[in-house]
């Protein structure tokens, strides 16, 4: 198990470096950073001055090394737009995003897994139909529309919940539902399919032949095996929620990291965009790593591979 973890860790670090290089290269792919910084009215001389000032005239690899070492120390440079250190800017926004992401994935898992299990126990029953309906609806409904409907009903008509902002726990209820409901259908279907598959397997029959009670069969023998693909999917979705909740953050005016990314792209604020891409990628890498470790714990066959 330890060898497995170390191997995966090494792989994760390797991927992280690759990603950092790609995210740094984006700066050059996006055009001349000095020109972008100087603005449309700047003269050629001004651009040259800026280029030297920011060190854009140095070879790319030197700039990358410089940037990487600063990044490792937590220094992502200064935002062109806010004139503030990018690190503190992101740190401030990230807490909102992380709360939202954690709530969203929890909501998705807590609804999808029980529903998927219940649907698999009795295929084609009422509960299976309800689960299918909910998942189709969840997949078909755009997040921005669902979010607006919730605001109209619960904030405006009923006045139960605040429509926007992030100042209290109540502010997070509707965004959590919208974000979680978006991730729920895939998790539910995967849980249902996995459970159906596992429940018809030979080793479940063996467990029954031992006289194990139904609850033990479902949760100890079946779910542990059926949940393995769900773990991988949830990790990817968690990463997605942290980086891609721009729509939800905009609708509910939660000024999180996703919203910041969107703003910074619009403002050509390259250090911020670079840092955000790196941070979001790191989230993916960390979650994938954690999912691998969790899966290896769940399924001993993975430890040896």
């Amino acid at each position: 198990m330890l060898t497995f973890i170390l191997k995966r860790l090494g792989l994760a670090v390797l991927v992280a470096f690759t990603v950092s290089f790609i995210s740094f290269s984006l700066l050059f792919l996006a055009g001349d950073p000095a020109a972008a910084l100087a603005g449309e009215t700047a003269s050629g001389e001004d651009i040259e001055t800026l280029r030297r000032l920011y060190g854009f005239d140095r070879p790319m690899l030197v700039q990358y090394g410089d940037w990487l070492f600063s990044a490792l120390r937590g220094d992502f440079g200064e935002s062109y737009y806010f004139r503030l250190p990018v690190a503190s800017l992101i740190a401030e926004r990230l807490s909102v995003t992380m709360i939202l992401g954690a709530c969203g994935i929890s909501f998705a898992l807590l609804t999808a897994v029980p529903l998927g299990v219940a649907a698999a126990i009795r295929p084609n029953s009422i509960i299976d139909r309800v689960a299918l309906f909910l998942s189709v609806a969840g997949q078909a409904m755009p997040s921005f529309w669902f979010g607006l409907i919730l605001i109209v009903v619960f904030a405006i008509k009923l006045g139960w919940l605040p429509p926007s902002g992030a100042s209290s726990a109540q502010h997070f209820i509707m965004p959590t539902i919208v974000l979680g409901y978006y991730a729920m259908p895939a998790i539910m279907r995967l849980t249902r399919a996995g459970m159906l598959d596992v429940l018809s397997s030979d080793y479940i029959r063996t467990a029954r032949a031992k006289g194990a009670p139904e609850g033990r069969i479902l949760f100890r023998h079946a779910l542990r095996n059926a949940i393995i693909p769900v773990v991988s999917l949830a990790a990817v979705q968690m990463g997605f929620m942290l980086g891609g909740s721009i729509v939800v953050e905009s609708i509910f005016a939660l000024h999180g990291a996703g919203y910041l990314a969107w703003e910074s792209i619009a403002r050509n604020d390259l250090p911020t965009v670079q840092a955000l891409i790196l941070v979001f990628s790191m989230f993916y890498i960390v979650f994938t790593f954690l999912a691998d470790v969790l899966n290896a714990w769940l399924d001993p066959r993975m430890r040896s591979s």
Partner: peptide, 20 residues
């Protein structure tokens, strides 16, 4: 009764044990 007073051995040993 199952497992205690009557037990069963199945045909397929490769898949009859829980891999986890």
């Amino acid at each position: 009764l199952r497992g205690a007073r009557m037990a069963m051995i199945f045909q397929e040993p490769m898949t009859s044990l829980n891999p986890a």
